[in-house]
């Protein structure tokens, strides 16, 4: 058996639209998620993250492509797939008519646990997520953060091998977000594979063992956060120059041997360099010799945003 828990090739999804062009939400996505890792799908709004996850969770049929999820063919054996996965949607899926605990117990029982096992499992999960105190309140009265944690507990009720989390931390305050990250790492350490979507750079960077950056329904880059950032090259020097000097400055930067790549415009020229600490003084000297004016200059390590920027020409911050 392979150690891949998700193996998707050429996934596509086209939504027909009444009176209009069909929407190509996903245009050929290949994904490999290993058993027991946290895999991130990072991309701006409308990139196709939710659609990809919904296809992998058997909720919508792909227009083209195929996938094996948790050891079973997505199209031929959807039921087997459903038995092995957990799915927490952007909406959460907590039933507000009953208590949080009843939600978790029902989810466990529908997956075949006995009443006693389900009760024990629910108590265990509620303890882990610090929900015991609010477990028997009507779910209607829970705060957003509590509801998110209940959603996660519901998704984990049957100890799935793989859990899909669609934007799990949207709407959480920083403290809850940090706690949530800790819980996700705990899941991975317990052997559960996690496929999560996010449009937060820091989240993908901090949490994902590996990730795929998606844009307009395509994977534009994939690898570990470290690999991806190295591929952009180590550091980024950003310069602000008067609009008139943007052209010559850009040419000058590109001519330096230690500059691997140049991007951006006068408002923010970016020079990608291997070792920023030694490149910066050299660059300053070259600028002076070239007689160009620089209004501001800064040096920073490459982020995933630089990866996105290089692949798409846009910043994830602007795109999202």
């Amino acid at each position: 058996m392979s150690d891949l828990i998700v193996e998707a090739t050429g996934l596509e999804k086209t939504y027909p639209v009444r009176r209009g062009e069909p929407v190509h939400a996903v245009r050929g996505v290949d994904l490999d998620v290993r058993a027991g890792e946290v895999f991130g799908l990072l991309g701006p709004n409308g990139a196709g993250k939710t659609t990809t996850v919904r296809m992998l969770a058997t909720l919508t049929a792909p227009t083209a492509g195929s996938a094996r999820v948790a050891g079973h063919d997505l199209l031929r054996e959807p039921r087997r797939v459903r038995e092995r996965i957990g799915y927490v949607s952007q909406a959460g899926g907590v039933d507000e008519t009953v208590s949080g605990r009843e939600n978790v117990v029902l989810a466990a029982r529908l997956h075949g646990l006995s009443a006693r096992e389900a009760a024990r499992r629910a108590a265990e999960l509620l303890e882990v997520f610090a929900l015991t105190d609010v477990a028997d309140r009507p779910a209607r009265t829970l705060s957003g953060g509590q509801r998110r944690r209940f959603a996660l507990a519901i998704g984990l009720a049957h100890r799935p091998e793989l859990i899909f989390l669609d934007e799990p931390t949207t709407g959480l305050d920083p403290r809850n977000r940090a706690a949530f990250w800790q819980e996700i790492r705990g899941l991975r350490d317990g052997g559960t594979a996690v496929l999560l979507t996010t449009h937060y750079l820091d989240e993908a960077d901090a949490l994902a063992d590996r990730l795929a950056i998606v844009d307009h329904g395509r994977v534009v880059a994939a690898g570990t956060p470290g690999e991806l950032k190295r591929r952009v090259s180590g550091d980024v020097i950003t310069l602000r120059v008067p609009a008139a000097d943007a052209e010559p400055a850009s040419r000058l930067l590109a001519a330096q041997p230690y500059v691997r790549e140049v991007g951006g415009d006068g408002g923010g020229l970016r020079a990608y360099v291997g070792d920023g600490d030694s490149a910066l003084p050299a660059l300053l000297r070259a600028i002076e010799e070239g007689g160009l004016r620089v209004e501001a200059i800064s040096l920073r390590r490459a982020t995933l945003d630089d990866v996105f920027l290089r692949q798409t020409g846009r910043s994830l911050r602007d795109a999202a």
């Binding site: 058997t58 909720l59 459903r82 038995e83 909406a91 507000e96 989810a107 529908l110």
Partner: peptide, 20 residues
């Protein structure tokens, strides 16, 4: 209406991702 509330809250979808 109750069913629609459940649809909006993602409950139906969450259940449908299981073997129910």
């Amino acid at each position: 209406y109750g069913m629609l509330a459940r649809l909006r809250a993602g409950v139906l979808e969450r259940l449908a991702a299981g073997p129910v």
